[in-house]
Design a protein around this nucleic acid. Structure first.
Lengths: 332, 332
DNA sequence: CTGAAAGCGCTAACAC
DNA sequence: GTGTTAGCGCTTTCAG
């Protein structure tokens, strides 16, 4: 039964032209109340569904948005993608989501595919070094990434101030501040490091070996790190405050601190970043700088839909979303 | 520059017809090596991209798959979606993912939209009671759900045997088995309960108030539950073994057990379900029945692509994916 | 080996 | 208020 019933059949059934059917479907142009009812009834009866590929081809708009995300399995990213999808869905857009695994090659492949699918816009989360988007001429918003583009829309957390807040808190509660981070050129990371260093300077704390750069990739975060243990061991007699680049690292530090028989938060104070689930689950619970994923996603969706409605405007925009410190049990 | 260059322009540039261009793009039909080179070069030079909406309209295939998922923020679902997306992507399909929030209304809306987008197939994860898919006549695979359909493809974990394994383990290590579950009609839950009860019977354990059904929804799992505490209090003098319907509940039990000063795993033994991250993060680490999300996703992708390649075959299929018990610190 | 032409389902002038 | 028609970009007969 359900076989491909089109506007043409509806037209035939109701003795009007396809144009009229189109008019009532889109509620656009004029038609009598009578034909409206007739057409709507036929649509109802037959279960007719508009073919968006045909519409898209005709009006040159797919109502689809591509989302490039490193890994949807990561709580931070999945929260953003979910909220983006929800906001966009309310505006009539469907989302094609692509896990790039942080691979520039994959990113470029996806970008090509998405543009073939005629997505109306793109939300690109993090990662660097892909370049296929340079060839694209559609609205794009970048989350946590500053592309080398003339006109660009960027949404990101206030990583810098988040780091400052964390570092200041450690200092103000009497701890000697250290930072543990990963080796990456992600702007988010760089900003956090910059915030840490600036805060050190502002408080006249000398910066001798206060930053440990780990070689971990995100999946290994929960593993033991000899490097980190050695680092902690070296400084354990001071009252140390660790600012970790993310909650996984904070958790790692927490485990090692236990192994080293340090009292938390008397001997060692720990602040992570992201306010990920792990920070609430760990024992003791980890204090963390919260990123407002809902707000990031909402703004990203809003900005792209604005640009979609107004393709001629081409100004750059950057939206910084505030972060805040969530105090739990690893700090005083 | 980048403005909508189509097959027609390529044809003009290379002095061949659009038909020939189409032939070399799809490597289909015959053409000389010379024209092939010419066309490919023009494509390269211009950055031409095939318009999949036009192709789709013509050949009646969108190369898009819709994925309905309750909540991509949940680790179990996100793992499945990620792997599905990856497998499908390798086969040339793009995925439109939709978070249904377990709302039948949303599900139906999404289903309608997806069918308008002309998705070639659907992967539907969990949840019940939507019905819009009944009107659809495209391949669908259901994960953890048994729809009321004549012909259907189902992929699911072996919830029943997982529950049996957990329960048997508790009994064999000398604990009196209890189950804590939630009020839902999800088949996954029902199967686990059935496994628990059957194992009780097989071991001649009487079933008096051994099952506690909680009214929690997944977001509240980490909160305290007075109900659960009361339940534990009542049975705390026996050596109790708790089989929790999922790892969040297991975590809840763990917290309460600590509050009640029960020794883990001497006084109380706990086994969760899903092998979610929380089970590894908690202290002590929680034993759990692992669901093989990779395998679930791989099979789902395989089955749907098979059906896509062979739309005439219409037999029902059910694929049960084995689960296994991961022992950690909450069991002996 | 290649071209002409029809047509996928739809919208938007343009007529009446 | 409604119909006719062109055409979006592409594939696929059918001729040659």
């Amino acid at each position: 039964m359900n076989e491909k019933i089109s506007i043409k059949e509806i037209a035939a059934m109701t003795n009007v032209s396809v144009a009229t059917v189109s008019r009532v479907i889109n509620n656009n142009g004029r038609f009598s109340e009578d034909t409206r009812r007739k057409v709507l009834k036929a649509i109802e009866d037959t279960g007719y569904k508009q073919n968006k590929m045909a519409v898209g081809l005709r009006i040159n708009k797919s109502n689809m948005i591509g989302i490039l995300v490193p890994d949807i399995t990561n709580e931070f990213y999945s929260a953003i993608v979910k909220k983006c999808e929800q906001s966009l869905s309310e505006l009539g857009y469907s989302c094609i989501v692509c896990n790039t695994d942080r691979s520039p090659i994959k990113e470029n492949k996806y970008l090509k595919r998405l543009s073939e699918h005629m997505v109306d816009g793109l939300i690109i989360i993090s990662t660097n070094s892909s370049n296929e988007f340079l060839k694209l001429n559609i609205p794009m918003v970048f989350i946590d990434r500053n592309p080398n583009l003339e006109s660009k829309i960027i949404v990101q957390s206030d990583h810098y101030n988040g780091a400052c807040t964390a570092t200041n808190y450690l200092i103000n509660t009497g701890f000697s501040p250290y930072m543990i981070t990963t080796k990456t050129r992600a702007t988010a990371t760089q900003e956090r490091v910059r915030g840490f260093i600036d805060t050190l300077n502002e408080n006249n704390v000398e910066n001798n070996n206060r930053i440990l750069k780990l070689n971990l990739t995100s999946n290994e975060f929960l593993h033991k790190s000899v490097e980190t243990k050695a680092f902690l061991q070296k400084i354990k007699n001071k009252k140390i405050g660790i600012f970790a680049i993310n909650d996984n690292i904070a958790y790692l530090v927490l485990q090692l601190a236990k192994e080293l028989n340090l009292n938390i938060p008397q001997d060692i104070s720990i602040i992570g970043f992201d306010d990920a689930p792990i920070s609430k689950i760990a024992t003791p619970q980890i204090s963390s700088i919260r990123q407002n994923t809902d707000e990031i996603a909402t703004q990203a969706a809003r900005l792209i839909s604005e640009r979609l409605d107004n393709p001629n405007i081409k100004i750059s925009q950057t939206k910084i979303i505030p972060t805040d410190l969530v105090l739990r049990e690893t700090t005083i």
